[in-house]
Each structure stands twice: as structure tokens, then as C-alpha cells.
């Protein structure tokens, strides 16, 4: 039970510092970016212009970048869903200590810096790396092979980076349901796979949907892993933005790319908020 609405001064005082901070450091920068994306170069007077957006939509290079980002994100999300559901199901229906170990298994990598995890993948995927060494030792390939600078490499590393988000979200919705309904289903004569298909899976749909939206949103804006694994030959949206900001110093164009990315994210995030809220009941 929350306290009566008759005392508004106290919550207002408590929430004001955070709100001011959020507005100045979060929403103002977003709005500022929006305005930068439609303002021309200072040399031309800095008036309203859509040239940054026009550049994106007319340049085949950026169409390719956007398409690659989108395609990779879809593959990464689908892979996370396919691996995440069984893992979450196993976790939620395991005895206590197994579950604790598995949760650690998911959270420990999640809490490790993305830079370090990507570093690990560079060593694994690279020439003379773990995969190459295993295949060579087994006599399967003659020469050193490398998955660096390949889309497969990006997908493998990104799935490892994002899988925890998917698993934890699905786990949350499975935990809310509890095993009783599955037990009831078995008692009523449904087989194991029938129970998963008719009970467990439908009940975790909200978790799967909100988890995959989150994974997709994080994936299209990921920058460290694709940049390091893919390199300059396989640029994605986020990497291009970084390039514009730190290399070409074309901030208007960087702002436009960011706004487009933000727009794509918001389209996903709003249903995410909606789904995760209805799933919480």
C-alpha cells in the first residue's frame, strides 16, 4: 500500500534531483541530437536541412551498412531465442543448486566488460586462434583458418554477448508461472513434449517476445563487438556513427544516423514496455 496523495511535497522533493539529472543528461542530449541532424553546416549558415537524411537514403554504401546491421541483428536475435528458451526452461525447472550454478553461468559473462569478452573472441576466432588450432590438430583443415572479419564471427560473438538478456527475461516469465501448471498437464495425460508445446511455451511467450525485442534493440546499436570482430570491411550502423564522430567529424550526419537508429529502437522499445508490463501481472 502506498501513502496517500495528500502529501505531494515529499515525493516531489525526493524525485527532483533525479528528474533534473535525467532531463539534462538524457533527454536534452537526445533532443539536441535531433536538432543537429536537421541543421546544415555552419559554413552554409546553419539553417534547416534534410541533407543528412538525404545522404543516408541516397548513398548505396549506407544502405548496405543498414541492411547488414538489420540482417545480422535478425540472425543474432533468432539464435538467442532458439538457445535461450530451452536454457531458461532447464534453469527454471532445475533443483536449487543447479539453478544457482546456471544463473552464475549467465550472469558472470554479462557482468564482464564487453571489451574483454570481445577480446576473448578475437583470440578464439583469429588466425592461429582456438578454433583454427582445434581444426588443424584434428586434421580437418590444412592451413590456419580465421573467422575474423566474417559475418559468422560477428554473429557468434554477439550471441554470447546478448544471450544473457534473452535467458534472464524468459526465466522471469517462467518463474512467474511456476511448475504447477506443467505438472497438472502431465497428470491430465499430456506427454513431455506436448506439455512444453501446449503449456510452457505459450506461457513464456511474453518473456520470449520482450527478451527478443531487447536483444534486437541492443544488437542494432552494438558497436564494440562488430567493430573489433568485423573490422572496417564489415561496417555496421553503430560503427559508422563512431567513424563519423571520431574520424570524419561529420556530426550532422552522425546525428542523423543516430536519430534513425533511435527511431528503429523506439519502434521496438515501446512494444517491449507494453509486453513486459502485461507479462508482469
Amino acid at each position: 500500500m502506498k501513502q496517500a496523495s495528500s502529501r505531494l511535497g515529499e515525493p516531489a522533493a525526493l524525485i527532483t534531483p533525479g528528474l533534473i539529472f535525467l532531463v539534462l543528461a538524457f533527454f536534452f542530449p537526445a533532443l539536441n541530437m535531433l536538432s543537429l541532424s536537421v541543421i546544415g553546416p555552419a559554413a552554409d549558415g546553419g539553417g534547416f536541412t534534410l541533407e543528412h537524411y538525404a545522404k543516408f537514403f541516397t548513398d548505396d554504401y549506407y544502405a548496405g551498412v543498414a541492411l547488414r546491421t538489420f540482417r545480422l541483428s535478425i540472425i543474432i536475435t533468432v539464435t538467442c531465442v532458439l538457445i535461450g528458451f530451452p536454457l531458461a526452461l532447464i534453469m527454471s525447472r532445475s533443483p536449487g543448486w543447479v539453478r544457482s550454478v546456471l544463473i552464475m553461468l549467465v550472469i558472470l559473462p554479462l557482468m564482464t566488460s564487453v571489451v574483454i569478452r570481445t577480446f576473448g573472441w578475437l583470440v578464439i576466432l583469429g588466425p592461429g586462434g582456438l578454433i583454427s588450432w582445434v581444426l588443424e590438430t584434428a586434421g580437418l583443415v590444412g592451413n590456419q583458418i580465421s573467422l575474423m572479419h566474417t559475418e559468422s564471427g560477428i554473429v557468434i560473438a554477439m550471441v554470447q554477448v546478448l544471450l544473457p538478456f534473452q535467458v534472464l527475461t524468459v526465466l522471469g516469465s517462467l518463474n512467474r508461472v511456476g511448475p504447477e501448471l506443467e505438472e497438472a498437464s502431465r497428470v491430465m495425460g499430456a506427454g513431455f513434449f506436448q506439455t512444453i508445446r501446449l503449456v510452457s511455451l505459450p506461457l513464456s511467450i511474453p518473456g520470449i517476445v520482450s527478451g527478443s525485442l531487447l536483444v534486437f534493440a541492443l544488437s542494432i546499436s552494438s558497436f564494440i563487438t562488430p567493430s573489433l570482430v568485423g573490422g572496417v570491411r564489415l561496417p555496421v550502423m553503430a560503427g559508422s556513427i563512431y567513424q563519423q564522430v571520431t574520424g570524419s567529424f561529420d556530426w550532422g550526419f552522425a546525428a542523423a544516423l543516430s536519430v534513425l537508429l533511435l527511431g528503429a529502437t523506439l519502434v521496438l522499445v515501446i512494444p517491449y514496455l507494453f509486453v513486459s508490463r502485461s507479462g508482469r501481472r
Binding site: 533525479g18 553503430a238 556513427i241 556530426w251 546525428a255 537508429l261 529502437t265 522499445v269 517491449y272 514496455l273
Partner: peptide, 19 residues
């Protein structure tokens, strides 16, 4: 207050840099 959790930090970081 929870929205920074789901909005990509990349976009927010650029915005902050520009500001």
C-alpha cells in the same frame, strides 16, 4: 527512470558528447 536501461547507450553517448 528505467528507460536508460533499454535505450542504446551508444546513442545516448553521442548525444552527451555533442552537448
Amino acid at each position: 527512470f528505467l528507460s536508460p536501461l533499454i535505450l542504446p547507450s551508444l546513442i545516448f553517448a553521442i548525444g552527451l558528447l555533442m552537448v
